[in-house]
Design a protein around this nucleic acid. Structure first.
Lengths: 223, 223
DNA sequence: CCGAAAAGATAGCATTACTATCATTTATAG
DNA sequence: CTATAAATGATAGTAATGCTATCTTTTCGG
């Protein structure tokens, strides 16, 4: 039996639900490819439409603008990752093992999850690393936050903070430590590939060093 | 005697040196104000020119484009901060006190330094928090890095890494820990103000909580 | 098979991100 | 003090971007 993983997205993120039509899924799929390839700055609805074989107006029927689309795919990723976290830490009691699992999920290139046919999670992971913070580093952040556009990220952060408290109930900054781990899993990855002198990891090495660094940091802090 | 602090900038950052003319200084000053006010995305050379009372073409004579101008002001800030760090940790022997001083400089709203007349460092600090990472989160990062545009940031990071090693010569990830402290000083500030549930600091509180969190983290890691 | 919804096709418009040109002002060297 | 080079101002123009509008055709559900 094949199982399609359906992720329910905040309705404010789109004008028409892209999961409910072929064109919508194409928009998501090709957006991920194009943003990954050329970066978010040079990504336009015109180029996307040409890539898909539809028109600019067609894309605008699904998303208000490219920033909303970015928030959509990023929120999709966080929701998917939260699901992965739940799935893989289910039945585990030791919070230390849970946290190690989470760090690996955050910092390691995910393999494409076949149960979500039109989303390539490994490309998406790269997009999150480079473009993820651009979703909130705007003048609109407070309005977007009121519309709950960042809820998946915040949920994951809260979830990690809880496990941190399981590990050490007296630790004073669980949420900041959680957001630090999340952000650093990405930033250290970016630095490793593009500005390696800001890290202790060689450029050609894989993410194992980052995982080791984050684990070391996290568990030293939680002692 | 008045002392003007002159910061020598990488020549690749500009077409004509903005420090050497009135118009150039106005460009820097008003850029900082405009980017701070409306955000980098809505900042254009047209608006800047109108603000100053010159023309778009006039601004283009100094900077290739707005991204270069952003890198310029961000690099300026890092150079200036490195100077502050040197100045304030000079004569201090204890690396713990040095690191505490640095954390305070990184995370706390700086007061406007009068020895740099056309730059408002407190506005600049806010810009670094919100826009700083956009300087390198691009497809051009490697070319820009080859042109040494990020050298001031990297120098500061290396400097902090050295002090970390003074603190604990056996610590294995000094550079990654340094970049983590730098980045988190900003990101936790942004989260505190705009997405407070990702932190343990109330929105109306000052940066003292962030300083405490970073110190706690850093010295637990370095034990 | 009908009506509604979605998609396609095309047009248009204000803004952005530049480049080019030429006239005028300002600085500076002889 | 003038010649002249450099910097600035003024204006124009162009391709791309970020949309909105409208009208037609296709698709789909009842």
């Amino acid at each position: 039996m094949e199982i399609e993983l359906q992720i329910k997205m905040n309705e404010k993120l789109f004008l028409r639900n892209p999961e409910q039509s072929e064109l919508g899924k194409k928009i998501i799929m090709h957006s991920i490819q194009l943003i990954h390839k050329n970066g978010f700055e040079s990504f336009t609805f015109k180029k996307l439409a040409e890539d898909i074989g539809t028109t600019e107006a067609g894309v605008y029927r699904y998303f208000e603008n490219k920033h909303r689309l970015l928030i959509y795919v990023v929120a999709w990723y966080w929701t998917w990752l939260e699901y992965q976290v739940m799935y893989r830490t289910n039945n585990i009691n030791d919070p230390v093992i849970k946290l190690k699992t989470i760090i690996k999920l955050l910092a390691t290139t995910v393999q494409d999850d076949l149960s979500t046919s039109y989303v390539d999670e490994s490309l998406l992971h790269q997009i999150i690393i480079t473009e993820g913070s651009k979703t909130y580093l705007t003048k609109r952040v407070s309005e977007d936050n009121k519309d709950k556009l960042f809820k998946p990220y915040k949920d994951l952060c809260a979830h990690i903070a809880e496990i941190i408290l399981e590990c050490n109930p007296n630790y004073y900054y669980p949420k900041s430590l959680a957001s630090t781990i999340i952000e650093m899993a990405h930033i250290q990855n970016f630095f490793k590939d593009h500005l390696p002198s800001l890290t202790d990891f060689g450029e050609n090495k894989d993410e194992a060093g980052i995982v080791a660094f984050l684990e070391d940091m996290l568990f030293r802090v939680l002692k």
